[in-house]
Design a protein around this nucleic acid. Structure first.
Lengths: 207, 207
DNA sequence: AGGAAGAGCCTAGGGGTTCTAGGAACGCTC
DNA sequence: GAGCGTTCCTAGAACCCCTAGGCTCTTCCT
């Protein structure tokens, strides 16, 4: 019985920490949606008063930022594991599936990822997630014969498409007949062939 | 002097209506960000008490939904105008630029577009925006030799990429050296060639 | 061991928010 | 001009964010 009894009893410490608060917020985000993650709700989930959270987290916005960073880290780890030892098309498919699967498994965390970035820079610097994510994309594309600046453009296209697809899918954008899953594998096909035949500059038939 | 004088004067009607409230919310969203669009703020902008808005709009969430629908309509109109009379690559570029430009011109409205959809269905039915947007994409792709289900997949890929790019760009995802603008035109190139050489089923070299 | 220093969590409270309930003034119709 | 619906208001409950300050438990120093 570590947990506190309601009736004014001596109350054991809850053992809060910035990471535990962030995790509780992330879990809540996946359950009820990021927009319903409030200080009070997180406090309730931790069996604590809302004011207590401010010892560990600067504000609600700060908490949201931490959730976003946590999500970026987790997503990066999953992608790294999925693409380890693969190259070319295999790596592409593994990368993309890991990305989409993370968005499915943790919708709240994933949407935290999309908020216009305004996170404590000192916090960002310590979190390796976002940086590594971009690096992973570059190395995933290594097998294709791309040179700068085409490589950067390809990286950005990849990230745009994957993010756009999972985002639209989560928002219910693909409600119609054809299953989103089928479209997904065909899009990966398409991206693969695109990367193999990336139009180098100066091509593209003139009018 | 239609506007109300503060000191208990007779007060002319403000002439509110659901559309006017929605427009005020949309303008506010573009100026201060969608998350700062509150009932009180919209009421202040209209020179009215917040309780008065509930005669025209069911709730804050309802207002957000209406802003999203307004944005979808406006974006669709812009795209329709831009692509009128064009085909093939011309149409693709015009379509994409109109999309991106709308996101730039109206960031708040555009992010309203992305919220997981939970809008009054009766309202959605009356708004032609989202439906026409998809139809426009289909007809924009007509010049490419695609047949179902490839056509639907291509439409979804297009929408995913455009949405993902503008979304990441707005969130500050392309902060690094290469200008986003350059990547943008190269990505449109890439999409164009991809549509011309869409991998029909059963292709894609086996391992 | 005794005391000081520092965490961890609390209560109290101000100010902002959404939304409901009910009342007064306006404008239209008959 | 009387009636009636619409428009907007005031009042208020409930929730939220966040600050200030106090109490208690842990830890560490001497």
């Amino acid at each position: 019985m570590l947990q506190t009894e309601k009736g004014g009893m001596p109350m054991a410490r809850a053992g809060l920490t910035a990471d535990r608060v962030t995790l509780a917020g992330a879990e809540l985000a996946d359950e009820v949606g990021l927009e319903h993650v409030t200080m009070s709700a997180v406090a309730r989930r931790l069996g604590v008063k809302d004011a207590s959270l401010y010892a560990h987290v600067r504000s609600l916005e700060d908490l949201r930022g931490r959730i976003a960073l946590l999500a970026a880290d987790e997503k990066t780890v999953r992608i790294a594991e999925a693409t380890a030892g693969r190259a070319g098309r295999d790596a592409l498919v593994a990368y993309a599936n890991a990305w989409r699967q993370y968005a499915h498994d943790h919708p709240g965390r994933y949407t935290a990822t999309q908020i216009p970035i305004q996170i404590d820079p000192e916090l960002v610097a310590r979190a390796a997630g976002p940086r590594r994510a971009v690096e992973l994309t570059y190395s995933m594309l290594r097998a294709y014969a791309l040179r700068e600046p085409d490589l950067t453009d390809a990286v950005r296209l990849m990230r745009s498409t994957l993010h756009g697809f999972t985002s639209l899918e989560a928002a219910g954008g693909f409600a119609h007949a054809r299953p989103a899953e089928d479209t997904w594998v065909r899009c990966l096909d398409a991206l693969h062939t695109l990367l193999e035949h990336w139009p180098t500059h100066g091509e593209g038939e003139p009018t």
